[in-house]
Structures are given as C-alpha cells and as structure tokens.
C-alpha cells in the first residue's frame, strides 16, 4: 500500500509541472501580451515599459518561466488589479469559505445520492426509482446559476427561511474568526449563535452546488448496484441463503463503492467550477466569486492564480480518491 501511495504521489510531479507551464503560458498567450493583462488595454506606454522591466518580460521565455515558478513556490502571485492587494492574501482569506461550501455540498450529495441510488436500484422500476431518475436528469440539465436563483427566490425571498447572501449576518460584526471556517469558528469561540448563523448562510448555496454531483452520484450508484446485483457472486450468495442485509453489506455495497468513489472524485472538479457560479449568485465570499469578479474585471493576475490554485486542489483531491481505491480494492495496488 505504501509503495502504491508513493508511486501515485510521484506521478503528481509531471502533472504539476505541466499545470505550471499551462498557467504560465496562459497570460502570455494574451493578444497584446502580459502587459495588457496586468495593466488593461489603455495603459500608457511608460507604464507598459515599467511593467516589462519589473516582470523581466525582455528576458528569454524559459528564464521568465523559471522566475515564475520561483515566485509561485514562494507564494507570490502578484497583485490584484482590482483590489490592489497581494493575490495570495486574497485567495487565502477566501479559501476556507470555498472549502466550507464545497464540503457541505459534497456531504449533501453523498448523503442523499448514495442512499437514493441504492434504494432506486433495489426497487428497480418502482416510483422511487422513476422519481429519482427524473430528478437526477433535471439536476443534470438545469444550469447551476438558474437553480441558485430559484432557491434564493423561494427559500430566501418568498419564505424568508434563509438569508439571501453572504457568509454571515451584518450584526455578527463582533464575531471572531480564528480558523476562517465560520461554522467551526462559532463552535470554537463558544458562540453557538454565530455557528447557526454561518450554517444558515451555507445551506442554500450548498444545495444549489450539490445538485449536479447529487444527480450523478444517484445515477452511478443505481447503475453500479444494479450491475453488482446481477453478478454471479451475489446470485451465489442468495442461493446460499444469506440474508439480504448481509449480501448488501458484504457484496453489493463494497463492490459498488469503487465507481461511486471515482464519481465523487471527478465531481469535485464540477463543485470547484460550480462554486464560481453559485458563490456569485449568493454573494458568498469565496474563491469562486473572487474569480468570477476577476473575470468580469479582466483581472488576469487573479484569474491566473485562481485557476492554478483550484486545479491543484482538484489534483490533490483526485490523489486522495486514487489512494482510497487502494484501500477499497486490493487489486488496484498491484497495478
């Protein structure tokens, strides 16, 4: 297992190098070059010259790449054009929010999707099955931001159950945030009101964000449970007179888990991109919204760093998923 893990981690290196090249070339591919990216399209020639010197744009490309990697490794992503603050600080400040949101969304998607898919498969053709199929189809087809508006309209504006936006209420200005994860902060600082307030702000955006992974997880769970149920070893077990619950636990769930874990890993990518849209709809102050604002304002240092950052997160999550394969299925390790 250790050797498998080590090999898997080593495989990351070329991916990360490739990513850094991709993101490095990103801004340099801009029509007008990185000067335009950093200064906007109507900058004065003096400013352009200043920036060219500052960023060493007159040097050969590979030298520029080396210095780019050096600055990335020292966590220097430049300064945001709109907020005029170091990009790394802006991202660090917003990162806990995005983690809170995506983790909550994933919990919702898994906690609802797996049981739903399982029940749908075990009662193949029943109304539960049909309903979950129809629901998951709709979940896949509806644009995330449209669903966000819909949830906001009904549950925040019409019913007033949840706040329309933000991460915490206006009156919570005396709250302390030692960790940056607001729900956790409320608990840690012994302020249950703050924790509940933060949780209430999380629910609608997390629901909107959870829909697509929920739909996929339900479908894949249903499909893989159906497939496993048809396998010989399950039929054998049934013939041997094992009880349904034992079969479910020992055979079906365990074997159906592999494709489900794969989907959960892949869906993290969808969650991270979906966060760009959902956080914008709910004015949830995370990396996604920051990135969306950067796209609006053509703030390329932020776009560049944000994409690199989220891609690295995605790669790391998939590493975890691969490692968990090793735990779930011994065969994978030898491959």
């Amino acid at each position: 297992m250790l050797r498998f893990a080590a090999r898997r981690v080593l495989l990351l290196v070329p991916i990360l190098i490739g990513l850094s090249i991709l993101v490095f070339l990103f801004v340099r591919a801009l029509p007008g070059g990185p000067e335009t990216a950093l200064l906007g399209e109507n900058a004065t020639p003096e400013r352009v010259a200043q920036v060219r010197e500052l960023y060493g744009l007159d040097r050969p490309v590979y030298e520029q790449y080396v210095s780019y990697v050096q600055s990335v490794l020292s966590l220097d992503f430049g300064t945001s054009i709109t907020t005029r603050q170091p990009v790394v600080e802006e991202i660090a400040r917003r990162f806990p929010g995005t983690v809170e949101l995506t983790v909550t969304a994933m919990i919702i998607a898994v906690a609802v999707g797996i049981p739903l898919g399982f029940v749908a498969a075990r009662r193949y053709g029943s109304w539960v099955d049909n309903l979950s199929t129809a629901g998951s189809l709709l979940g896949i087809a509806i644009p995330v931001f449209a669903l966000g508006y819909l949830l906001k309209y009904f549950f925040a504006i019409k019913l007033g159950w949840f706040p329309t936006q933000g991460r915490e209420g206006s009156l919570m200005f005396r709250n302390e945030h030692p960790t940056g994860f607001y729900v956790l902060d409320g608990i840690v600082t012994g302020n249950p009101e703050a924790a509940v307030d933060a949780l209430r702000h999380l629910i609608l955006p997390a629901l909107a964000l959870a829909t697509i992974p929920l739909a996929f997880i339900t479908r894949i769970t249903r499909a893989s449970v159906l497939e496993v149920t048809g396998e010989d070893y399950v039929r054998t077990a049934e013939a041997k007179g094992m009880t349904r619950s034992v079969i479910t636990r020992r055979h079906i769930l365990r074997n159906a888990m592999l494709p489900i874990v794969t989907v959960v890993g892949l869906q993290t990518g969808l969650l991270l991109s979906g966060a760009v849209l959902t956080e914008t709809v709910f004015a949830f102050d995370g990396i996604g919204r920051f990135l969306a604002q950067a796209v609006f304002a053509r703030d390329f240092p932020v776009i560049q760093a944000g994409i690199l950052f989220l891609a690295v997160i995605f790669v790391l999550v998939n590493l975890l998923v691969d490692l968990s394969y090793g735990l779930l299925d011994p065969r994978v390790r030898t491959r």
């Binding site: 019913l159 007033g160 159950w161 949840f162 706040p163 509940v196 307030d197 949780l199 209430r200 629910i203």
Partner: peptide, 8 residues
C-alpha cells in the same frame, strides 16, 4: 435553522 430565519 429555519425558525431563526423566519423572524427576519
């Protein structure tokens, strides 16, 4: 969760 919100 819902109750505290409903007041508002």
């Amino acid at each position: 969760l819902v109750g505290t919100a409903a007041c508002g």
